[in-house]
């Protein structure tokens, strides 16, 4: 780029803006990490800023010893893995056939699918349907109802459509059927889009809480976010805090912070590595054919 006319001051203002943006994004997380590692006394006195005071890992030990919390953590991990796998399979099964120009009825399928993106029946009809299907309060309700996203399907379809058709045609001449072509040619080339969608679906399930709030009233099947929601809204902190913590507001605070860390850190560890892919994925989503 041309640099001659750039003012030095302008460059530094821009660097400053970026640094401020980063700080604003990071500081809340730094604070919660510091709180989770601080002593209960420091927390009660409200002394914890960006650095732990009276360093201790008691809170993490307490959280890990809390059966309900660790159970919810494992349960959510299981839901996330199973849900993401199912979603990816469904998305591929939906997107791949729609990339065939020759597919008879392709327009019909496309319209049928896109229509659900623009018009949705609303949450109550869905709730009543799940009730009629006897899915309410069963684990399956946290996986099936939202297992296929039209938006993500479109991302995959756009990606697959951009692969050269000649590859498919030469495989067809060699006698390979559509499923064979999907498995041995398309899927191996789709690693970037699969990684992106896996991240999107997994984050959606890991962070999801309203479906559980509405469709699931069995505590043993609460995903982690619903447990956390109950934790931050109820002053008594019924779920995770032990009798000891209930009487000690400082411990309650550090427990909350530690619980937040458990729910947040897994995602924070994963997403930066997939940045290149999800940027491409998010851009593909803007193409709607």
């Amino acid at each position: 780029m041309i640099t001659s006319k750039r003012s030095k001051a302008g460059d530094w203002i821009i660097v400053l803006v970026c640094v401020i943006v980063m700080l604003v994004c990071l500081l809340p997380i730094v604070n919660i990490a510091a709180r989770s590692l601080s002593s209960t006394e420091a927390l009660i006195r409200n002394e914890v800023g960006l650095w732990p005071k009276g360093l201790n890992i008691e809170a993490y030990r307490h959280v890990l010893e809390d059966g309900k919390f660790t159970r919810a953590l494992w349960w959510t991990a299981l839901l996330t893995v199973a849900g993401t796998a199912l979603s990816l399979v469904m998305t591929a099964m939906c997107a791949y056939p729609l990339t065939y120009d020759k597919l008879k009825g392709r327009r019909f399928f496309n319209v049928l699918i896109i229509f659900t993106m623009y018009f949705n029946a609303g949450i109550i009809p869905t709730y009543l349907l799940l009730k009629d299907l006897s899915m309410l309060n069963r684990p399956v309700v946290l996986i099936l109802p939202y297992c296929l996203s039209v938006f993500y399907m479109i991302i995959m379809r756009s990606f697959l459509s951009e692969l050269p058709v000649s590859m498919r045609e030469s495989a067809e001449i060699d006698g390979a059927g559509p499923i064979r072509i999907l498995v041995s040619i398309y899927l191996p080339l789709s690693a970037p889009v699969i990684a992106t969608l896996a991240l999107f679906y997994a984050v959606g399930r890991w962070n999801g809480f309203s479906d559980a709030l509405m469709f699931m009233n069995k505590r043993e099947f609460y995903p982690i976010q619903l447990l956390l929601y109950n934790l931050i809204t109820s002053m008594s902190n019924i779920d995770i805090v032990t009798a000891e913590g209930g009487t000690n507001p400082g411990l309650t605070e550090s427990l909350k912070a530690a619980a937040f860390m458990f729910a947040t850190v897994p995602i924070l560890l994963v997403y930066p590595w997939l940045q290149k892919y999800f940027i491409a994925g998010a851009t593909l989503g803007a193409i709607k054919e």
Binding site: M22, L26, I29, V203, W206, G208, L228, L268
Partner: peptide, 12 residues
């Protein structure tokens, strides 16, 4: 860093 908040749930 700026993408990070997008990956946090509203509960968090």
């Amino acid at each position: 860093v700026a993408y990070m908040p997008h990956f946090l749930s509203w509960v968090i």
